[in-house]
Design a protein around this nucleic acid. Structure first.
Length: 318
DNA sequence: CAGAGTCAAGCTGCG
DNA sequence: CGCAGCTTGACTCTG
């Protein structure tokens, strides 16, 4: 079991800008930004290894405008050496890597142009992981998409796009990396399981918090086991679980939307989660605003659990 | 230099 | 109908 956090490290000072506006686009600016971003990624990974955080989600902003027609620069070729070095570091330290494209990636859109743009964006994510020569355990996770007034049709469109348009060639390993995640309003775990079957087994990232927002009455552990059954441990690595909890606000504002992520980890809830899922092994991505701070706390909690007389079968580093 | 306005991209539910 | 929310505010202009 590894514990990780997404995209940003709040403890590492950064002086350079990580992205820029389209109006400021130039090849020179692009190259400089990518250089800084790769350097910064390297610093984060070193921080993580030093602190034994061995799971990390790489930001989709690593290469600004990568899937935009405006960007014709061959960044993969230009930075091949840097990508390989980072990849070596990742493999040497057995770091788990994932990516999560943003909300604009919609494979079940009823507009072909949006599907095309989405696939280009997915290919961009895939090229990063391929450039680092990471295996199939380095995943790209997306949501199923919109409902458009008819869920069954929307699901069918997702399956159709996946089966016909997602490549699985050596050149682009997208199919072996792509995984779906249950969301908090539209596609439940049950919907995802249905899609997994129809796609010949796309793995499901179990988002624990989303599951509490939207479910079909399954208990946590059995729900998690169902999601885990869609993963092939040899090809896909350990199952990934997204963990967060509800933002309860500061007491003065009780209108916080259901589904909003919390600012920092609640250790009592986290312990409860570990207790309820005892006996299962998976990697946990903490979707929590204070990032590495919560990851450090969670790791400490996990360690104290594993070394306590009440033996947990979850073990760090497996 | 601080604060406000704006930023490539989609969809949904709320007020 | 505008806006917040989504994995994350950051960049850039104005005064």
């Amino acid at each position: 079991m590894k514990i990780g956090y997404p995209c940003i490290n709040t403890s590492i000072q950064r002086t350079t800008a990580s992205t820029f506006r389209m109006a400021s686009y130039s090849e020179k600016r692009l190259i400089n930004t990518i250089k800084d971003n790769l350097n910064h990624l390297n610093n984060i990974l070193e921080y993580n290894v030093k602190n034994e955080i061995l799971f990390f989600r790489i930001s989709s902003d690593l290469i600004p405008f990568a899937s935009h027609p405006l960007c014709t620069f061959e960044w993969r070729k230009f930075f091949q050496l840097e990508f390989e070095q980072i990849g070596e570091y990742i493999k040497k330290n057995k770091i788990r890597i994932s990516m999560h494209p943003d909300q604009f990636v919609i494979l079940n859109s009823n507009n072909n142009k949006i599907i095309e743009n989405s696939i280009n964006e997915l290919k961009y994510h895939c090229r990063i992981l391929d450039a680092m020569y990471l295996d199939g355990s380095a995943k790209i996770q997306i949501h199923v998409g919109g409902v458009y007034g008819n869920k069954q049709e929307a699901i069918n469109r997702f399956v159709d796009t996946y089966n016909k348009k997602i490549e699985g060639s050596d050149d682009c390993s997208l199919k072996k990396r792509l995984v779906i995640e249950n969301d908090d309003r539209l596609y439940s775990l049950e919907d995802c399981l249905y899609i997994s079957q129809d796609t010949g087994g796309i793995p499901i990232v179990f988002d624990c918090f989303h599951h509490t927002c939207y479910n079909n009455g399954e208990q946590l552990k059995s729900a998690l086991q169902k999601a885990m059954s869609t993963w092939n441990r040899n090809k896909d690595g350990l199952s990934i679980v997204d963990y967060s909890s509800q933002d309860l606000g500061n007491g003065t504002n009780d209108k916080i939307r259901k589904g909003k992520h919390t600012g920092k980890i609640n250790i009592t809830s986290f312990k409860q989660f570990l207790k309820e899922t005892q006996g299962l092994d998976f990697d946990i991505m903490l979707e929590i605003k204070d990032k590495e701070k919560s990851a450090l706390k969670a790791l400490k909690t996990l360690r104290s659990k594993t070394s306590s007389p009440i033996s947990f079968t979850n073990q760090v580093g497996l």
